[in-house]
């Protein structure tokens, strides 16, 4: 598995692109041939009294959202379908502008998309006319860094365990492999933050677990800030250091809680995982039920 390979050793991609915050890679093991660049620093995000309505006269989808995400933090946004998770994530990515409030990344207001904060969607949406390597290289091409392609793409494909598939057509891969290509495509331009919108929900449980583990490991190794949108409590517990639970109608932060688990415990099954899982499940159900009750009251009103 790529992630276990990439931890130690000078020639592995992780050491080449990351650097300091990886305990396994002491400065002595860092290859002198590695690109000379500052270690990737995750983005710092501040969401400031953000509200959003899609149309002027519609109700608010999001209402008064405030939170901060530290550099290199791994956060899950957990909430029921329709509570505005994707909307919020699009705003973090600069793909949508909020109607009120703002998203500030590294001290600057987000006005437009950037390769520094890349979003990964539920569908990999690879370009079917390109090979795996060409798909992974798109971000570099778009940001006029084509000269880095030859050096970085093989590295990044190894990182997601697809080194042997570089020249295959993107359509010849399985769903899980395609999502790995999408991950490589997001990582290639060296982003400071990855925003994942339920990227594994279409995969089988086994593939999904592997990817959850790998993405968390990659983000930690590279020091990336990672925001994962999910309605799967297990996914939140496995992947995130911190979970922000959103309530619906309008979307608000209902709970902001840390997941305190070691990497081994996250792998699942163990007692610690079960404890955190049922705790978060409790929080999530309470918030979801509160929303249901509210819906019932609203329904009663409309039926009067």
């Amino acid at each position: 598995m790529a992630v276990t390979q990439l931890m130690p050793g000078a020639s592995t991609p992780a050491t080449a692109v990351s650097g300091t915050d990886l305990p396994a890679s002491s400065p002595a093991t860092r290859s002198p041939a590695a690109p000379r660049r500052a270690a990737t620093k995750g983005a710092h995000v501040a969401v400031k009294s953000l509200s959003h309505a899609y149309r002027r006269n519609d109700g608010k989808v999001l209402d008064g959202i405030d939170f901060e995400i530290g550099q290199g933090e791994i956060v899950a946004l957990l909430g029921r379908s329709g509570c505005g998770k994707s909307t919020l994530l699009h705003m973090l990515a600069g793909l949508t502008q909020p109607s009120e409030g703002e998203v500030v990344i590294n001290g600057n207001g987000v006005r437009e998309p950037s390769h520094k904060w890349v979003m990964m969607f539920q569908a990999p949406s690879l370009f079917p006319w390109l090979s795996v390597a060409q798909n992974a290289a798109l971000g570099l091409k778009f940001t006029r860094r084509g000269h880095e392609i030859d050096a970085r793409i093989p590295e990044i494909l190894d990182l997601v365990d697809l080194g042997a598939f570089a020249d295959r057509n993107a359509q010849e891969l399985s769903g899980g492999q395609q999502q790995r290509v999408a991950l490589a495509r997001s990582l290639a331009p060296q982003p400071e933050m990855l925003l994942l919108d339920e990227p594994f929900s279409a995969l089988d449980a086994f593939t999904r677990r592997n990817l959850q583990r790998d993405v968390r490991a990659i983000a930690r190794n590279l020091g990336l800030t990672l925001v994962i949108v999910t309605h799967d409590v297990g996914e939140a517990v496995r992947m995130a250091d911190r979970v922000i639970v959103l309530q619906a109608n309008p979307g608000r932060v209902a709970e902001d809680t840390a997941i305190d688990l070691s990497e081994e415990e996250r792998a699942g099954g163990a007692e610690g995982f079960q404890r955190e899982h049922s705790r978060l499940m409790g929080v999530y159900s309470r918030i979801a039920e509160a929303a249901d009750a509210q819906d019932d009251i609203a329904n009663d009103f409309t039926q009067l």
Partner: peptide, 8 residues
């Protein structure tokens, strides 16, 4: 959307 997201 993917292209825009990657800075195209």
């Amino acid at each position: 959307k993917v292209a825009r997201n990657l800075g195209a």
